[in-house]
């Protein structure tokens, strides 16, 4: 089965961790993930600049490793990301910002990618809230 997974909550929310564990379980059970889409505070999952205490789960790093290892299509909503200071190099140059925090394998794109994923997958699973 093809899953589209949408993440609306920040890495410090438990629902963000549940989204990652669900995504891992999807692949472990032999299903596929057609796209991960990060929206609202979920865009912070793509940040390479978040610093997590050593004895805590580093979710941005865990997401990065998961996406890289399985070569997943991981899209971050560009409008939501800009609003929250998560820029890639191209956007940092466009808006004259000193640094950027979103790199490969993450792609910044529009909400059309959420609709496209929801339409083409067998299931859309959303993770938000606490």
């Amino acid at each position: 089965m093809q899953f589209a997974i949408a993440v609306f909550s920040a890495p410090e929310q438990a629902s963000n961790r549940r989204a990652l564990r669900f995504a891992e379980a999807v692949l472990a059970e032999g299903h596929a993930i057609s796209r991960l889409f990060f929206y609202q505070a979920g865009v912070h999952s793509a940040s390479s600049q978040q610093v997590t205490a050593q004895d805590e789960l580093d979710l941005p790093r865990a997401w990065h490793e998961f996406v890289t290892q399985h070569q997943l299509d991981a899209v971050v909503c560009i409008a939501a990301a800009l609003r929250r200071g998560q820029l890639n190099q191209a956007e940092a140059e466009r808006y004259n910002r000193d640094g950027y925090s979103v790199q490969t394998p993450w792609e910044l794109s529009g909400l059309g990618q959420l609709h496209d994923a929801a339409q083409s997958a067998d299931r859309l699973i959303c993770f938000g809230g606490p």
Binding site: Y39, Q40, L111, G112, L114, H115
Partner: peptide, 19 residues
């Protein structure tokens, strides 16, 4: 905060695709 607006943005984006 931004949640109502971001929900509407999903609606408007989907409407643009005639969904």
């Amino acid at each position: 905060g931004s949640t109502p607006r971001e929900l509407l943005d999903i609606a408007l984006a989907g409407g643009a695709f005639d969904l």
